[in-house]
């Protein structure tokens, strides 16, 4: 680093300290309702987490938090809305894997989340689970991968470039097997066809299949995270079951437009931490297959950067691109 830039950085640092000391509004934050943007229509998995989160965040912030659904364009519209809003902490985003780190590799984005958004804190990390239906009577991950070598297995996904899709892509690439992808509109219809024996297997969110696993309609083979899932302790991770480097989770985080006042950001990070310590919130999170995350600020940003690089390679290898 040259002398000039170092001095420049110092100046910026000093300026930001004086700025953050000045305005009284940041300390009183929030003085009006906070809008929490969800990039999906009401009723989806992200929406469900956002609504439960918002209800707890209200208590921690001692102010109104309103969930606003801004669905559209593969969840890129929500990103645009927040990126363009004033960085005052009154417009926030529930960001998740797809629009934050996968979409930049697929779409020409108007607002790149890495440049236009400020990661505040990560909320949760949700495991996915590998399940097979009656069409493919295998009992373990190893058997599934073995079978996939001799025949082209069909898997359903919750949609093109969804967490369920890219997690299966990664699996296929690591195992060097060719899989047949059938996209559905959401996990529900895909699980339905898995139960009906129209597709072979699926990698999907825990809540979409937990009941069917427990009553034996579907067979769970593995979970996709680095650690086992507490509600299904006998289930190995994909890494344990044969693909040592494998890990894929759907995660959720709180972000704001670039340039949030430091005090607001810290208040929000603190409120998020408080929410994540709430046993009732943890319980509902666990039902969604999630574990709380404690990545804040820069750590969260670094995590997003590494996820972005990793999924970029997967998407590139699978040649998914929208012109």
């Amino acid at each position: 680093m040259t002398q000039f830039t170092r001095r420049f950085m110092l100046a910026i640092g000093a300026a930001s300290i004086s700025v953050s000391a000045l305005p009284a509004f940041a300390q009183d934050y929030p003085t009006k309702p906070v809008t929490l943007v969800v990039s999906y229509a009401a009723g989806g998995g992200t929406d469900a987490i956002a609504r439960v989160f918002a209800a707890r965040l209200e208590k921690a912030l001692d102010g109104r938090v309103i969930v606003e659904n801004r669905p559209g364009a593969a969840a890129n519209i929500g990103t645009d809305v927040v990126a363009k809003s004033d960085p005052d902490g009154y417009t926030l985003l529930i960001g998740n894997q797809g629009p934050m780190v996968v979409n930049p590799h697929i779409f020409k984005l108007r607002n790149d989340p890495a440049e236009t958004l400020d990661p505040i804190a990560m909320i949760a990390d949700a495991q996915l689970v590998v399940v097979v239906g009656p069409r493919l009577p295998v009992k373990s991950m190893a058997e599934l991968l073995e079978k996939a070598k001799s025949q082209r297995l069909v898997y359903g996904s919750a949609g093109n470039a969804s967490a369920s899709h890219v997690a299966t892509l990664l699996m296929g690439q690591m195992a060097h097997v060719d899989l047949k992808h059938v996209p559905y509109k959401g996990a529900g219809p895909a699980v339905n066809d898995l139960v009906g024996g129209h597709v072979d297997f699926m990698v999907t969110t825990v809540p979409s299949v937990i009941g069917l696993i427990q009553n034996g309609t579907l067979t769970a083979l593995a979970v996709t995270g680095k650690e086992r899932f507490p509600a299904l302790p006998d289930l190995p991770t994909v890494a344990e079951a044969g693909l040592p480097e494998y890990s894929a989770t759907a995660w959720y985080g709180l972000l704001g437009p670039k340039g949030l006042p430091e005090e607001v950001r810290q208040k929000l990070a603190g409120a998020t931490a408080e929410t994540l310590a709430d046993p009732a919130f943890l319980e509902s999170l666990q039902k969604d297959g999630g574990v709380p995350s404690h990545l804040v600020g820069k750590d969260f940003a670094d995590f997003m950067a590494s996820e972005r690089e990793r999924w970029g390679e997967v998407v590139k290898a699978a040649n998914i691109k929208v012109e």
Partner: peptide, 15 residues
């Protein structure tokens, strides 16, 4: 389904 899960009831034949 979401409402049932929130209430701690896993939808399925066991309900």
């Amino acid at each position: 389904v979401g409402a049932m899960m929130i209430q701690g009831i896993v939808p399925g034949p066991q309900v």
